[in-house]
Design a protein around this nucleic acid. Structure first.
Lengths: 334, 334
DNA sequence: TTGAAAGCGCTAACAT
DNA sequence: ATGTTAGCGCTTTCAA
């Protein structure tokens, strides 16, 4: 607490207290070189007594590594970034590393400013995340060779490493489940098709139908909202194709669908089964009935990002686009 | 790009390129000391040419300041932490500072581990946030005098600085609005009363009623869910007190209330007006009708945290509990 | 106005 | 086994 002098406790204070040189303290702290056990004990005792905490910034000057990663979000720390960040931070902090949060909100200027700050802070790597998984220009590292991972965001440079959920596989799994539980007329109500994820999920839906020899139902596009889920579902149900199941592009659409069906006197899942996408807790639980939904496992996506980032920082380069599996979470709607 | 040598460009490289000493480069960069304009130009030209970026870690060794703040969240980066983080990061990054994200999830061990990492990284301050605003033990800084701000979380040490939304004022504003629009029988359906926020909102509700000379309606407690919103509202409507308005403890409860009312044939807001709390976009917009709700202005709360953190780091100590105003966002339900 | 030199807290090679 | 010393990239006196 009161070490007599002012300012933080340094390695010199420890050396003095233990009656050794600072080099010896350093060795004791890092288990390097050779040291008499007794000396080590003495040093560690002084460290405890003085409550000494090594300054990692000073250490960084030597190693060239700061033990720090920058996370640039274009999601304003939104719903998708959160779990990714959680998984990432968990893995990195286990490795003694920290995460700098930056919010760029799809503003190139802000992103550039953040990049400058991060580089000045000597970060060891960059993670770029986004609100959606469409292609974006690669971050401009100005020739500085720094590991970069795009997660839930997609660099247009194929030499970059991009981590994404397997949207197509997720949709395939969901539709296969519907088919296995006896559904034969499966429609798809989803979001705007300028989203890559929308196109991929559509592909998975079609693939599962094709594999079972079932005809593709209609596909309806709209905004990602409950209101559109209701409207599109109503539209769908008065059409010629009477679905016995609907794969929804996200949980909000699915919840809108559930409401529309119930209010038109149809039962879920007896008359029409429903599967959502995102497995967003507040949505799936509030839905009537509770919604079966595809989970993109974003937490795990973030954790995998962390593991790969550690590898890259240690010198193993990685590139390409990797898709991690989604999982279907069963509830009452399908 | 290729500066001939390996590794990052240092101040020495710039000095060499500009034909001056490193001391001169430093002065040119920081506008300190006296320097011939021509020399400054020469240096800055070299900086540009080499794409030199000062190493702030090295600078930190002198200043003792890292330009870095740690944010310890106990919310797993949840819905409430997000906007706070966004506001905080915005202000701090404007000041050239960065934010380290840590997720402690209410685990004292994890919090301690994070604290150690943050201190080793020489952070200049700590922000502690939480899922709810109940009291918590102060972070143990072990005698290190470091600025700490509790936001959307409440230290049990009155000498700490705590920033919170004005729950009571928010409820008061909401109920006053209901009264002004002619409502006279105002009930309160809310969350578990072990939440400080619940008790404060209740207080605001009562105060507004008292000021208007209206009798307090019933108050019903339940979980923060739509299901409980529906159940409690149904219970309320069959009771002896026929409310013409309900202040809801959060938006989920309010949305449940809206559904229950509509499904029992009552119109919102004609028969019963509804006000929610949180102004959570997906909830208020999906609600039928769109929900009038109290916004806690968490983004601004985060921004204010950032401003005060900057002040504290600059040497102005602060303490006490400060409550920032909520605002009522009008939509169709009241 | 500019340069030389002494550190900031720490590591690591080299002496002893 | 331990101490000495030369930096890591930068700032900041103090001389010149």
């Amino acid at each position: 607490m009161s070490d007599g002098r002012n300012g933080p406790v340094t390695i010199h204070d420890v050396a003095r207290a233990a009656g050794v040189s600072i080099g010896t303290v350093s060795k004791a702290l890092n288990n390097t070189g050779s040291l008499a056990p007794a000396t080590r004990e003495k040093v560690l005792a002084a460290v405890k007594a003085l409550n000494f905490r090594p300054n990692v910034l000073a250490k960084s000057l030597h190693t060239g590594l700061s033990g720090t990663v920058g996370l640039i979000s274009n999601d304003s720390f939104g719903r998708f970034t959160m779990p990714i960040m959680e998984g990432l931070e968990g893995v990195l902090s286990e490795n003694g590393m920290g995460v700098f949060m930056c919010n760029a909100t799809d503003d190139a200027e802000r992103e550039k400013a953040h990049l400058e700050q991060l580089l000045a802070k000597q970060i060891d790597g960059i993670v770029v995340t986004s609100r959606r998984a469409d292609r974006r220009p690669a971050v401009d590292l100005q020739g500085i060779g720094l590991p970069v991972i795009y997660v839930f965001s997609h660099s247009d440079d194929p030499d970059d490493l991009t981590l994404l959920p397997d949207d197509e596989g997720g949709a395939f799994t969901a539709v296969s489940h519907l088919i296995q539980s006896g559904r034969k007329r499966i429609a798809h109500v989803t979001g705007p098709d300028h989203f890559e994820a929308v196109r991929l999920r559509q592909k998975g839906w079609l693939a599962a139908l094709a594999q079972a020899g079932l005809p593709p139902g209609p596909i309806l596009h709209g905004e990602w909202s409950e209101a559109h889920g209701r409207a599109l579902t109503t539209e769908l149900m008065v059409g010629p194709f009477r679905p016995d199941a609907i794969l929804c592009g996200n949980d909000r659409i699915a919840r809108g669908a559930a409401d529309a069906l119930r209010e038109s006197g149809l039962r879920v899942p007896e008359d029409v089964a429903l599967v959502g996408f995102d497995n967003w807790k507040v949505m799936v639980e509030a839905c009537r009935p509770p919604l079966t939904s595809v989970d993109m496992n974003l937490r795990e996506l973030g954790a995998e990002t962390g593991r790969r980032m550690v590898q890259m920082i240690r010198g193993t380069p990685q590139s390409g686009t990797i898709r991690l599996p989604c999982s279907l979470v069963l509830r009452d709607s399908a």
